[in-house]
Simulated assay, not measured.
Amino acid sequence: MILDSIEQLQNYTAFLPAIEKVVAYMKTIDPKKLPAEKVYIDGENVFVIPSVAKGKGADEAMLEAHNVYADLQVCLGSGETFGWKDRNMCIKPTGEYSSESDIIFFEDQPTTYVSVASNEFVLFMPWDAHAPLIYDGEIVKLIFKIKVG
């Protein structure tokens, strides 16, 4: 997991070159006007899902993980908190991995929590189980899916 300011996003392209496409896309949009639906930036390799959701309590948020895509989540609202746990330490899946949705959920409890403020991003790789949407209020963000698997 990586947490940093949007201004630093460009510095992570050596780690994950497709981030360059995210940086270029971010320069073309007004952060106060989310796209209405999923936008394919580089076909199935890089796309973005706009999200406006009501936050929930930490006890309601479930850990999830992905096999194919990294999640790069950009906070555009007031904030959001994520639970985190090393995926290899998760032992209570709620079901099977869905290849159609590229997701598996876990009943395990996070080992740590990280808060993301407006104009910050968090990057979750497939080895990161994360519990999103923890917040007392509305969450506004862009979820970039970057193919890594």
Results as ranks from 00 to 15, higher is better:
57 G>N: 12
58 A>W: 02
58 A>L: 02
62 M>K: 15
63 L>I: 11
63 L>C: 11
64 E>T: 01
64 E>P: 02
64 E>M: 07
65 A>T: 04
66 H>D: 04
66 H>Q: 08
68 V>P: 02
70 A>H: 08
71 D>A: 02
73 Q>V: 09
73 Q>P: 00
73 Q>H: 11
74 V>M: 10
75 C>A: 13
75 C>S: 13
76 L>Y: 07
77 G>S: 13
77 G>F: 13
78 S>I: 08
78 S>T: 14
78 S>Q: 15
80 E>T: 09
81 T>C: 09
82 F>A: 08
82 F>Y: 15
82 F>L: 05
83 G>R: 09
84 W>T: 06
84 W>P: 09
85 K>E: 14
85 K>M: 14
86 D>Q: 12
86 D>Y: 06
87 R>M: 09
88 N>Y: 07
88 N>T: 09
89 M>H: 10
91 I>M: 12
91 I>Y: 07
92 K>M: 13
93 P>E: 01
94 T>V: 13
96 E>Q: 13
97 Y>E: 07
103 I>F: 11
104 I>H: 00
104 I>Q: 11
104 I>P: 00
105 F>H: 13
106 F>C: 04
107 E>F: 01
108 D>I: 07
108 D>V: 08
108 D>G: 06
108 D>S: 04
109 Q>G: 00
110 P>T: 02
110 P>E: 03
111 T>W: 06
112 T>R: 14
112 T>E: 15
112 T>S: 15
115 S>Q: 14
116 V>N: 12
118 S>P: 00
118 S>Q: 15
118 S>D: 02
120 E>L: 04
120 E>W: 01
122 V>F: 07
123 L>H: 00
124 F>A: 02
124 F>L: 07
128 D>H: 05
130 H>G: 05
130 H>I: 01
130 H>S: 01
132 P>I: 00
133 L>Q: 14
133 L>T: 12
134 I>D: 03
134 I>H: 02
134 I>L: 05
135 Y>K: 07
137 G>H: 11
137 G>V: 11
137 G>N: 10
141 K>W: 11
141 K>D: 07
143 I>H: 03
143 I>E: 05
146 I>R: 00
147 K>H: 09
147 K>M: 10
147 K>Y: 09
148 V>I: 12
149 G>A: 08
149 G>H: 08
149 G>M: 04
